[in-house]
């Protein structure tokens, strides 16, 4: 790991569905130790950016580096929280087992998780106030609890950089607070967190760094310099200016 390298550096990234570009020539460089939000309207390519970054989607052009390395080499330093709706919650397993999946990357092929891994997974559940639900079948959890299980799983990856796809969508107030305190904890531990976020009101409150995206990268940098009515209005095509309260 190159200590001076940025956790995430994207150059000229273009992603397209057939001939329709979803992301156009994205440049993005996220510094260490920030809580970054990727903000933009529906169809702006926010989730696509995360997925393309992680190699879950074919890239038409451009490069992505994490800690100065291509993703395939930096996997172990990167934790991923997909959208909650991306998996089948009727899968026959319990919360602890899902969190344990976060340790699989460190284990590699074939090797089974040890007792220490289980304890670590339980500890990660505790961090999200979910230890009481460790043995609970995952379909019996509420939406917010399922989201916390996903975050505990990312925590179990012991990553340096976390990419999260809409962690606040459809969660209750308790979960929202649990997620925020986790994010702050991660930041104070020197980790970097990047979240896709769609709520303009809470963005400046939760995050200290922001990337405004609408197919192209409109602006990116520290929240206090980037979060201006002009930038936001440009990102949303001038439609929602009246809705924005937090803008400087």
């Amino acid at each position: 790991m190159n200590a001076s390298a940025k956790p995430l550096a994207i150059h000229d990234l273009t992603v397209a569905y057939q001939d329709k570009p979803v992301l156009w020539d994205i440049d993005l460089s996220v510094p260490t130790g920030v809580l970054a939000a990727i903000v933009g309207p529906n169809g702006a390519g926010k989730s696509t950016l995360i997925k393309a970054t992680l190699g879950l989607m074919p890239v038409a052009a451009g490069t992505v580096e994490m800690f100065g390395q291509p993703y395939a080499k930096a996997r172990r330093m990167v934790g991923y929280v997909p959208q909650r709706s991306s998996v089948d919650w009727d899968f026959p397993t319990n919360a602890l087992d899902v969190v344990l999946m976060g340790t699989y990357g460190q284990l590699g092929w074939i090797k089974r998780p040890s007792k220490a891994d289980r304890e670590w997974a339980l500890h990660c559940l505790e961090q999200l106030a979910m230890a009481d639900f460790a043995q609970r079948q995952i379909s019996q959890l509420s939406g917010g609890q399922q989201q916390r299980v996903f975050l505990a799983r990312a925590l179990a990856q012991r990553a340096q950089l976390y990419l999260m796809d809409e962690p606040f969508v459809g969660v209750d107030a308790v979960t929202e607070r649990a997620i925020i305190s986790l994010l702050q904890q991660l930041r104070s531990d020197g980790k970097t967190v990047i979240c896709v976020h769609h709520d303009l009101d809470s963005a400046p409150e939760y995050f200290d760094w922001v990337a405004l995206l609408n197919v192209r990268m409109i602006a990116a940098g520290p929240m206090k310099t980037i979060w201006t009515p002009e930038n936001i209005s440009q990102t949303y095509g001038g439609r929602t200016q009246s809705l924005i309260r937090g803008a400087a």
């Binding site: 992680l54 190699g55 879950l56 996997r75 991923y80 997909p82 089974r112 799983r153």
Partner: peptide, 22 residues
């Protein structure tokens, strides 16, 4: 039994499996 962990992960969450290198 050998690939239990991999089968389970790829079945439950193919996206995570891919990002973890499985």
């Amino acid at each position: 039994s050998v690939f239990y962990k991999e089968l389970k992960l790829a079945t439950f969450d193919a996206g995570l499996a891919a990002t973890l290198g499985f």
